[in-house]
Amino acid sequence: MGSTVALGIDLGSTTTKLVAVDATGALVHHSVQSTAPTMAQQAAALVAQARLDLGAPDAPLVATGYGRHLVQDAARQVTEITCHARGVFHATGQPCTLIDIGGQDTKVITIGAGGKVMSFAMNDKCAAGTGRFLEVAAQRLQLPIDAFGPLALEGDAEEPLSSTCVVFAESEMISLLARGVALAPIVRGLHRSLVRRVAALARGAGAQAPVLLSGGVARNPAVRALLEAELGLAVVVPPHPQLAGAWGAALLAG
C-alpha cells in the first residue's frame, strides 16, 4: 500500500464515504459516517482531516453522490453512476452489472470494458423498489432491520402481497397478521415484492452476469437470495460494497 495520490468522497443522503487510493488504485484509507444535516461543512472537515492524516494536502478530489455539488474542494463532480461503475470494475476487473439498492433509490448499471457505463436505469420516484420499502415495514412490525432478512429466509412458506405501494403494503401486512398469517411468510412476501421490482428494473436495463449487489440492502441475505432466483443469475456482494462510489471517484481523480 503506497502513499495517497487521490481522494474520492461520496456524499450520500444517509451516509458519507471517503476513500483515499494509491497509485495502483488500492485503498489506502476509508471512512463511513452518517451524513449530517450540515453536509457541506461535514464534507469539508472530513476532507481536510484526511489530507492532514494522510500527508496529502494536494491530492486531487472528486466528489460524487447526492451532495456532490456542495463540495467546494472538489476538482470535479461526477455522478454516482459513473463512479460506481469505475469502482466496481476495479474490484471485479471485468464487465458486469451492478445493482445498487439504496435507501432512497435503486440503480442498475451495466458496466463495460474499462469501467465504462454501457447503460443505466434508476428507480427513484417510488419507494417500493428501494430499501425504504423494507425499512418502513420493519419499523411497523417493530423488528430490527438486521433481523428482517434472516426472518424472511426462515422456512419455505411465502405470503404474496398484492400491493406494491409502500403505504398499501403496510396496511395489507397488518391485516394479514390480524387474520393470523405467520410473520415469516409475510416478511418473505415483502422481500419478494421488493425483489420483483428490482429485477424488472434490472431486466429492462439488460442485466447480464456477473451481477453484483451493493447499497445498504446488500447486507440483507434474503434480498440477495431472492434476487438470484428472480433473475436466474448468480448475485454476488463485492468487498466493500458501500465504498464503490467513493472508490470510483478517487480512481477518476487520479
Binding site: Q77, T79, E80, I81, T82, F120, M122
Partner: peptide, 8 residues
C-alpha cells in the same frame, strides 16, 4: 444525476 451521467 441522469442527465449528468449521460453526458459523462
Amino acid at each position: 444525476t441522469r442527465i449528468e451521467a449521460l453526458v459523462e
